[in-house]
Design a protein around this nucleic acid. Sequence first.
DNA 1: CCTGACTCC
DNA 2: CATGGGAGTCAGG
Length: 336
Amino acid sequence: MNIISGRKTSTGRVSTSRAVLEELAQTYELPRLIIEYRELDKLKSVYTDALPHQIAADGRIHGQLNQTVAATGRLSSSDPNLQNIPIRTEQGRRIRAAFVAEKGNKLISADYSQLELRLLAHITRDEVMLDAFQKGDDIHNRTARLVFGAKTDEELKDARRFAKIVNFAIAYAIEPWGLSQRVGISRQEARKVIDDYYATYKGVRRYMDEIPVQAREHGYVRSLYGRIRPLPGINDRNANIRRAAEREGINMPIQGTASDIVKIAMLHVDEAFRREGLDAKMLMQVHDELLVECPKNQAEKVARTLKREMESAVELDVPLIAETGIGDNWMDAKKQ
DNA sequence: CCTGACTCC
DNA sequence: CATGGGAGTCAGG
């Protein structure tokens, strides 16, 4: 029996990636233990060991937010990176809970609900997706019904998880191989899922076809508010480089417009805090989330201001929704 | 200094 | 031949 997966890294070595170990874990015990060890090792080295050394004399961590790093217009965060604080696992969440408000203060987290999928609907003008968001429907349930034919509540519950992955993946031009890897189905099944998806969301398919054409013509793509991303590889003689540039071109208007909107919202939020005499400070931006600190007695009002300014930052063919939470630490501020 | 792995959106 | 996009940090070589 072949114990070692045949998959190789770019340097020709045997891969021990999470995906490979997951597959081996179905047959052997050791790979599962290695996965668990790596998870804890990562949390310890990157966060538990390193972050305390970054605390300044005022008891706070003052990282950098970089404006000219990401090609799409997103901010990036470094020294330390505060945009990748754990949240997915229980032990990870304990690290996030270590970010606390000053005594007498609260943390308010506000994040856009499905910002990029809403922008996919707006930018592609896909009628079915626009209709879902305009009616306030759950987009993943709609995909579960229309693409996977889920009817009963039971079917819907199962199909929604799958639909959610598919909504995000196909929106950025994943290929059958990638989808099959991601959700553990065959390439043939993945191909059918993608075909069915495009048959439902015809506007999305049209966008996927049109973007590469205009990218080849101009050599760049733009976000809704004019941010330009050059795509030097779009006419390369190497097809792999060309296809990579096409996917970057498909993704940029979505991700780039999201980053435009969050930046506009940040300006409006700052102005509103001033106007309303609120003693609130923006601490962090995490792509679709703003983290704010303010005195306890202003927290409810700050949360309402955040929500209002984020939702009205721009006017689109779909509503923008922001959800807020208040807590003594970053974890609790997000949970509510 | 690069690679692979892992964290986040 | 490679196979959704965007980042930063770490250990190990």
